[in-house]
Design a protein around this nucleic acid. Structure first.
Lengths: 363, 363
DNA sequence: TTGAAATTGTCTAGTGTTTGTCTAATTTGA
DNA sequence: TCAAATTAGACAAACACTAGACAATTTCAA
């Protein structure tokens, strides 16, 4: 079976490049080296067509053909990716290009499978060919959720979350599905394999889901209150949302303020609510030089009776300050849960603050 | 794997800075020191691109390039994050910004009143000049909601919302309670009478409420899809949430991406979803120098069949660009609703646009 | 407030490089 | 025979580089 080859005319049509240009790119920059017929006509393989497309795409946005012509395919793809979207990106964006196609999944050209989207996962047949242990089915849900996120399918993502909720319970879904999912998305985001839009999207859906399912528990009236937010500069709210949900599940009454607030505002909210604790999530960046300052100021603004609890992937990067201000810094959601449980119990007795009266419960 | 480098034009595209500016920033302030080709052309690394982006964002909000050009990355990140999020003088000032004033808003100068939320609705005349008791009770609910917001009482706020929902219906609560409430909060925020924390808090609760109550309608399968978000730099998501809810109520399937996304990401999401429209809310910075650029780029990235609809208090401040890119800019939530209704009906027929056919080759 | 000084985005001009297009002469294919 | 591919070379438009000038703002002291 001869691997399908295309004459220059066809390639021109496929790539949008004129035959002239294609030839000149070959001659001057060695961009491709097509096979030839006996009579010296060019014959392009699918891979070469793909390559030319990528090159065309890159030059469209300002890259110099003379420089990129020699890049390897992998690099080329990265290049096109970073250029078509913001700094982080994957392919997609095909405005003028007639190609369209499945932007997310594989971009299956002739035979070359172009970069599956879960890089190192040897997830050959992820969908559970092996008899699923609980863990495996958990993992499967995570993968499904990830896929839904990739394609912006909010209904699918919700369905997965609800499936998980039924299967694992409120708390289980938080620890075993959402937590790893968030982590995975975070990593993909940092690697640039997922865009900020994906991250926002997933945040929105998950937040929505958590808020909704955690609500019932939030109505207890004597529950100790906790301010949940992220410090100024920390824009990723997913961690905070998870913390809020966990707190609600454990009989706290979280007051969720969204991401990125300066210390004064956090403290203000805490005081107005007679909060028992301030729960902060710190994920990215991990090298914020002002964060320590802010934390110290926050500590100063809060009465000593209010605990500051800091979690999140990058919390440990600020260990010094955390220690200095006496913040508690649990390792992982589990530990946080234990901690909250503990705090709630012990606060039950001494509690004499406001709260109590307020108003009835929600209808 | 070669460390990818970008020529100046690409960087310009990526950062929104003109090549002139990029060069001048290098020459005058040493903002970056790109590598060079043999022939003296500039080549920027990813890190340098990010740096320029941050610088661009920072200058956009009033920082002096001459001062911030030499800052380290961590500082820059912080600067941008703080400034964009917290905004109001308060804490942001103490950091690196020597200028005590609020660099952004000079809107509330002399007697010039800040614009009302969605254009001046001649309230009295529209609904009923008679001192309707309905209106009065509406107003009462708004006041109650405002009170709840001020004291961070999420349950109370929710209760008000639900009361409103029962009394006015899904759509009514959106137009008659949430919309004026959002407007009120926005104004109080600009006057500095409530903090960003209040605004975040209310956003979270309202968003949660809307998402929950609007959901049932969203599941229709043939519904046209709409990307809902705010352009980069626009951090107030309440308007977008309201739009999403309105769209859902009208038989659309909104894909809500949260606030502040760059054009490439919005376009990417739209393409992946075969969205019929992109709905943007523009509220706060009414003088963002970059927004026009971003909007133009967005238009370029989207196929012509995708409508761009822009609403929000400050939309009219960008009327020129909106006209240029052929965006629809409804005046107020009512008009938006009508528009969406119309679009949905007419889109029923033509339907499927997404490229579907992937590779042109045999495959 | 005013006015000088500094800041900063934009523009011009002159030079060299890069790159798409074009021509001409030949060969191939239907 | 005619349309299209092939090569090599020529060419001009577009682009990037430097250095400097300019005008609009902002800053800051009087």
């Amino acid at each position: 079976m001869v691997p399908l080859q295309h004459p220059i005319q066809v390639v021109s049509h496929l790539t949008g490049l004129s035959p002239h240009v294609i030839r000149v790119w070959e001659k001057r920059y060695g961009a491709v080296t097509p096979a030839r017929t006996d009579t010296n006509r060019r014959l392009y393989s699918d891979a070469e067509v793909e390559r030319l497309r990528l090159l065309a795409r890159a030059t469209e946005v300002g890259h110099k053909i003379g420089i990129i012509a020699k890049l390897e395919m992998a690099d080329l793809r990265r290049l096109v990716a970073t250029v078509s979207m913001g700094v982080h990106g994957l392919d997609a964006v095909s405005h003028a290009a007639p190609e369209a196609g499945t932007p997310l999944k594989e971009t299956k050209m002739g035979g070359s499978v172009v970069k599956p989207w879960m890089p190192p996962e040897p997830e050959g047949a992820a969908v559970g060919p092996l008899p699923g242990s609980a863990e495996q089915s958990d993992a499967r849900l995570v993968v499904e959720a990830l896929e839904a996120t990739r394609s912006f399918r909010s209904d699918a993502l919700q369905r997965v979350l609800e499936q998980g909720s039924v299967r694992m319970g409120h708390n289980g879904v938080l620890h075993r599905l959402i937590c790893p999912l968030a982590q995975e998305i975070g990593e993909l985001w940092q690697r640039g394999e997922v865009t900020a839009a994906h991250e926002h999207f997933a945040s929105a859906v998950i937040r929505d889901f958590l808020m909704r399912s955690a609500r019932p528990y939030a109505t207890e009236d004597g529950a100790p209150r906790a301010i949940v937010t992220t410090p100024a500069g920390q824009l990723h709210e997913l961690g905070a949302v998870m913390v809020a949900a966990a707190a609600a599940n454990l009989g706290w009454r979280p007051i969720y303020l969204g991401p990125s607030l300066p210390p004064a505002e956090i403290a203000g909210a805490a005081l107005q609510n007679s909060a028992r604790a301030v729960l902060l999530s710190i994920v990215y960046p991990a090298d914020d030089r002002w964060l320590p300052r802010d934390l110290i100021q926050l500590r100063k603004l809060l009465p000593p009776s209010v605990e500051i609890v800091v979690g999140g992937r990058s919390a440990r990067a600020y260990a010094d300050v955390l220690k200095e201000i006496g913040a508690i810094s649990p390792d992982g959601l589990e530990e946080l849960s234990d901690l909250l449980e503990e705090m709630r119990e012990e606060s039950g007795a001494e509690e004499g603050q406001s709260g109590s009266v307020a108003g009835g419960n929600g209808a």
